[in-house]
């Protein structure tokens, strides 16, 4: 199989066949990232499409010391944030004072598939969803998130707490269904 670096060089030269091969190699890996930020699969596909166009237009700036997949994911995340930015302006994130910042009970994820968690994430309001993804999955701090989304650090924290509370209720409900199904069996 042709190495990534060779494929990248061909893509930089504008070879469509190489671009298609690169797309085939990474599209399925990047789609879950886009799905976490998008509201639906169609929304995610729009994000992924825009992200790949950016990838092919900026491959020349890829520095080879970085992991290629990490670089690609970064572009998908940035595209997702831009995609959601307009919605974030229309539905501004507010500090939610009464939301507890820590959920005491641990969330049990072992019974669930990632697609089920993804479906739950997609049900979250856009602000909560974006902050949750950036903090819990990408590993950003609240300060970075606040800068990136142009909100206060407190807003980022409260949005995350709200996201976690909403997820907890959805996960608990899903776990109850799973347990009741097991009892029935």
């Amino acid at each position: 199989m042709i190495q990534d670096i060779e494929l990248i060089n061909k893509c930089i030269k504008g070879e469509l066949k190489a671009q298609r091969e690169l797309y085939d190699r990474y599209a399925a890996k990047l789609m879950p990232v886009a799905m976490r930020y998008g509201k639906s699969q169609e929304d995610a596909e729009d994000i992924l499409q825009d992200a790949f166009i950016k990838v092919f237009n900026s491959l020349g700036s890829f520095r080879q010391e970085a992991q290629f997949l990490t670089w690609l994911k970064r572009i998908v995340i940035n595209t997702s944030i831009n995609h959601n930015r307009k919605k974030l302006y229309q539905q501004p994130m507010l500090d939610i004072e009464k939301t507890p910042l820590h959920v005491e009970n641990e969330l049990i994820l072992s019974n669930l598939h990632f697609t089920e968690i993804m479906a739950m994430l997609q049900k979250l309001p856009v602000g909560c969803r974006t902050v949750f993804n950036l903090f819990a999955i990408e590993g950003y701090g609240h300060k970075e998130i606040a800068e990136q989304l142009e909100v206060t650090e407190g807003t980022s924290k409260s949005q995350y707490a709200r996201a976690r509370a909403l997820l907890k209720s959805m996960i608990d409900e899903a776990n109850r269904v799973v347990q009741s199904n097991q009892v029935m069996l």
């Binding site: 469509l16 671009q19 298609r20 797309y23 599209a27 399925a28 890996k29 789609m31 879950p32 799905m35 976490r36 699969q41 995610a44 596909e45 729009d46 992924l48 499409q49 825009d50 790949f52 166009i53 092919f56 237009n57 959920v103 641990e106 969330l107 994820l109 072992s110 669930l112 990632f114 697609t115 968690i117 903090f135 819990a136 999955i137 590993g139 976690r164």
Partner: peptide
């Protein structure tokens, strides 16, 4: 552990997008 669990859950996850995505990419290029 919740954040770690959820990170692990999405680690290596794959989902095949529809053919429309490549068509759009090709058009955009």
């Amino acid at each position: 552990s919740f954040e770690e669990d959820i990170q692990n859950m999405f680690e290596g996850a794959e989902f095949q997008p529809s053919d429309k995505v490549w068509a759009g990419v090709e058009a955009g290029l």
